[in-house]
């Protein structure tokens, strides 16, 4: 559905150049939910805007929905929907009018566009507000309308830029359901997020992006497996550095990082590592304040690849 090769975008300004996307190779398959996970400024939006014909790449190639992005952008546009991070409706225009307008821009007849708008209003639970100007919508209603606008013409590929940012947990869960339904009818969804849970729970495959480069790509499970078996988090009172020094060299520790007052140890088998850790710290007289055994999260994957936590990087 999407194939890119060495896609790049450099923004030039008086203050110098920003390499927002620094060589991205992607292969998104038909019918999957593909997630782009990365901290603020990683280049997610820039990549999406290039793939949706809004921004000409500085260099590189891409095929989107079967057409060359650069030479056949007009054809690409018929096949894709794009929901931007910022929103897309005019404050003075009623939601339903915006939906119908969008359908008509893709060549739907008025009757067809009205019918489709009604379907989406029902599916996205916008019936209460659809006929009011969007200025009066709540944040969540506006976000759902944006997504409705992107879905009006039943695109085979939908780009969603941070679809759930600003939604409460309930609306987020409902949005996930909507996205899954899209997959069920064969739509390919390419979404960005900086929520780990979202990438984990919703996406079939994810690419982790940082500083304009993809640092890891695969199914959430495969990525997590790649890091290590288990993560042991050791909390002490101000002794993180000493703990790190002490345990880094142990044979059962694959990798160790310190931050936020805790030390994270990547080990193959947590059950056997824990007693060894406790013994080692005890011998040095270091007092433990907490100790926990975790399955690796996508944050560990990010940490592993970049040396930073995604939560801090944001």
């Amino acid at each position: 559905m999407i194939a890119t090769h060495d896609l790049r975008k450099t923004f030039k300004s008086r203050k110098g150049a920003v390499e927002a996307v620094a060589g991205v190779d992607l292969d998104v398959k038909k019918g999957e939910i593909f997630g782009f996970l990365g901290p603020n400024g990683a280049g997610k939006t820039t990549t999406l805007r290039m793939l949706s014909t809004l921004l000409p790449p500085t260099s590189g190639q891409a095929t989107v929905a079967g057409f060359d992005l650069l030479h056949d952008s007009a054809k690409v546009r018929y096949e894709i929907g794009y929901v931007s991070q910022e929103g897309s409706s005019a404050p003075e225009i009623p939601g339903r009018t915006e939906l119908v307008m969008q359908g008509r821009l893709y060549g739907m007849t008025k009757a067809r566009a009205e019918q489709r708008a009604a379907e989406l209003i029902a599916a996205l639970e916008l019936a209460d507000c659809a006929d009011r100007p969007t200025r009066t919508f709540s944040g969540g209603q506006k976000r759902r309308l944006d997504i409705g606008i992107g879905l009006m013409h039943l695109p085979q590929l939908l780009f969603l830029d941070e679809p759930t940012t600003g939604l409460d947990p309930q609306s987020r869960a409902r949005m996930w359901d909507e996205v899954r339904k899209l997959r069920d009818i064969g739509t390919t969804v390419f979404l960005t997020t900086h929520y780990l849970e979202e990438a984990d729970a919703l996406c079939d495959r994810i690419a982790i992006i940082d500083h304009g480069k993809i640092v890891a790509l695969g199914t959430p499970d495969a990525l997590k497996r790649q890091v290590a078996g288990d993560v042991v988090v050791v909390g002490t009172d101000n002794a993180s550095d000493r703990v790190l020094q002490l345990l880094r060299g142990e044979s059962f520790v694959r990798e160790a990082t310190a931050g936020d007052g805790v030390v994270r140890l990547y080990v193959d088998r947590g059950e056997t590592a824990m007693p060894q850790i406790i013994r080692a710290l005890d011998a040095e007289g270091i007092v433990l304040s907490s100790l926990s055994l975790n399955r690796p999260s996508l944050d560990d994957v990010f940490l592993h690849q970049t040396g930073r936590s995604l939560r801090d990087a944001a």
Binding site: T53, L54, A74, Y78, E86, A90, Q102, I149
Partner: peptide
Amino acid sequence: AELRAGVIERFRVTPV
């Protein structure tokens, strides 16, 4: 104002 609301970007993705 429309640029800021994202309306223009939305139109530019369509084949209009």
